[in-house]
Lab assay of single mutants.
Amino acid sequence: EEEEKKKEEIARLLGVSKEDVERILKKNNLDIEQLLRRVQREN
């Protein structure tokens, strides 16, 4: 699934687990696209 791939990509870029990414998304109330763009910009 596309969303899972995005979570895995974010996890890889941040050096965290996919579960961490899911927690970040919930905690910050971000959607996956916003987080992915933010992470890609910083790297």
Rank of each mutant, 00 (worst) to 15 (best):
S17P: 06
E19G: 10
Q40W: 06
R37Y: 09
Q40M: 09
E22Y: 03
E33V: 04
I10W: 01
E33F: 04
K27F: 12
I10A: 10
N28T: 15
D20M: 14
E22Q: 05
Q40S: 05
E4A: 08
R41W: 07
D31E: 08
N43V: 14
I10F: 02
A11C: 06
L14W: 05
E42A: 09
E33D: 15
V16S: 03
S17T: 14
R37Q: 15
L35T: 02
R12Q: 08
Q34W: 10
A11I: 02
L13G: 02
R38E: 15
Q34M: 07
N29E: 06
R37P: 01
E2F: 08
L30Y: 11
Q34Y: 07
L36E: 04
R38I: 15
K26E: 12
R41G: 14
D31L: 05
E3Q: 12
E42D: 10
A11F: 01
E1K: 12
I24D: 02
E4T: 09
I24R: 02
K6F: 10
K18M: 11
R12N: 08
R23G: 08
A11M: 08
K6C: 09
E9T: 13
K27H: 12
E9D: 07
E42I: 09
N28K: 04
K18R: 09
S17L: 07
E4H: 07
A11G: 07
Q34I: 08
K7Y: 06
K6E: 04
E19F: 10
I32Y: 04
R37W: 08
S17V: 04
L14A: 02
I10V: 15
N28F: 15
L25K: 02
R41F: 09
E9P: 00
E8S: 11
E4S: 08
L14S: 01
V21N: 00
Q34T: 15
R23L: 14
I32D: 01
K27P: 01
L36I: 04
A11L: 01
E8Y: 10
K18H: 06
E2Q: 10
E9Q: 13
L14R: 01
D31S: 15
R37N: 15
K7L: 10
L36K: 02
E4I: 08
R38P: 02
N43R: 04
R38W: 15
E22R: 02
R37D: 15
E1H: 11
E19S: 10
Q40I: 09
V16L: 10
I10H: 00
A11H: 01
I10K: 00
E9W: 10
N29H: 12
V39G: 01
L25N: 00
E33R: 03
K7N: 01
L25P: 00
V39M: 04
R41P: 04
I32F: 03
L36Y: 13
E1N: 13
E8A: 13
K7E: 02
K5L: 13
N28W: 15
N28Y: 15
R41E: 15
E19Q: 12
G15V: 02
L13I: 14
R23P: 02
S17H: 07
I32W: 04
L14C: 06
L13C: 03
E42W: 05
L13T: 04
R23S: 11
K26C: 11
V21F: 02
I10S: 01
E3W: 07
A11D: 00
K5T: 09
E9S: 07
I24N: 01
V21G: 00
S17D: 05
V16D: 00
Q40V: 06
E8L: 14
V16Y: 03
R41S: 14
E33S: 05
E3F: 13
K27M: 13
L36S: 02
R38A: 15
K5H: 10
E8R: 10
K6P: 02
E22C: 04
N43D: 08
K18N: 05
I24S: 02
A11E: 01
K18P: 07
E3H: 12
K26T: 11
I32C: 05
E22H: 04
E8N: 11
L13V: 06
E22I: 06
L13M: 08
L35H: 01
N43A: 13
V39F: 04
L36H: 05
R12L: 09
K27C: 09
E1A: 13
E22D: 12
K26Y: 10
K7H: 03
K18L: 13
K6N: 07
I32T: 12
V21I: 08
I10D: 00
I10R: 00
I10G: 01
A11V: 03
L14P: 00
K27A: 14
V16R: 03
Q40R: 09
L14M: 12
K5A: 14
R12P: 00
V16N: 02
S17K: 09
L25T: 02
L30Q: 05
L35D: 00
E3K: 10
I24K: 02
E4V: 07
K18S: 06
S17G: 07
K7I: 11
E42K: 02
E8H: 10
R37F: 07
D20E: 15
L13S: 03
E19H: 09
E22P: 02
D31C: 05
R38Q: 15
N29P: 03
E42G: 08
S17R: 09
L25G: 01
E42Y: 06
I32E: 03
D20A: 13
L35E: 02
E33Y: 05
E33A: 05
V16A: 04
I32M: 05
N29A: 06
K6A: 11
E33M: 05
A11W: 01
E3T: 12
L13D: 01
K18I: 14
E9L: 15
E1L: 13
I32G: 02
A11Y: 01
E19N: 09
E3V: 13
N29R: 09
V16K: 05
K26L: 13
G15A: 05
R23I: 12
D20L: 10
G15I: 02
E42T: 07
E19L: 11
V39L: 15
E9G: 03
E19Y: 10
E8I: 11
I24L: 11
Q40L: 13
E22N: 11
V39I: 11
E3D: 15
L35N: 00
N43S: 12
L35Q: 01
L25F: 01
G15E: 04
Q40Y: 06
E2P: 08
A11T: 02
N43L: 15
K26A: 12
L13K: 05
K5S: 10
Q40K: 09
R23T: 12
E1W: 13
E8D: 11
D31N: 11
L35K: 00
V21W: 01
K26H: 10
E1Q: 11
D31H: 06
G15Y: 03
K18C: 07
N43I: 14
E1F: 12
D20I: 14
R23H: 11
N43H: 14
V21T: 01
V39K: 01
R37V: 14
R23F: 11
D31R: 05
R41V: 08
K5G: 10
Q34E: 15
V39E: 02
E3Y: 14
E1P: 12
L35P: 00
E4F: 05
E3A: 13
E3L: 13
R12Y: 10
V16F: 03
D31K: 07
E9R: 07
L30V: 09
E9H: 12
G15R: 10
K26F: 10
E33Q: 05
R12E: 06
K7R: 05
L14F: 03
K7Q: 03
E22S: 05
I24F: 08
V16T: 06
E2L: 09
I24C: 08
K5P: 04
N28R: 03
K7C: 05
E9A: 09
V16E: 01
K27D: 15
E33L: 04
I10E: 00
E42N: 08
R41T: 11
L13H: 05
N29D: 09
L14I: 05
L25W: 01
D20P: 00
N28Q: 12
S17C: 06
K27N: 12
L30G: 05
R23E: 13
D20F: 14
E2W: 12
V21Y: 01
G15L: 03
K18D: 02
E19M: 12
L14T: 02
A11P: 00
D31F: 03
G15S: 06
G15T: 02
E2R: 07
E2G: 11
I10Q: 00
L14N: 00
L36R: 03
N28C: 14
N28A: 13
N29I: 04
Q34G: 09
K5D: 09
Q34A: 13
K6Y: 09
I10T: 04
E1M: 13
E42L: 12
L36G: 01
R37G: 11
K5Y: 10
L13P: 00
L35M: 05
E4M: 08
I24P: 00
E4G: 07
N29F: 07
I24H: 04
E42H: 13
S17Q: 07
V16M: 07
E19W: 11
R37M: 12
V21L: 03
K18V: 13
K5W: 14
A11S: 06
E3M: 13
A11R: 03
Q34H: 05
R23Y: 13
V21C: 00
E22G: 04
E22A: 06
L25E: 00
K18Y: 07
L30R: 02
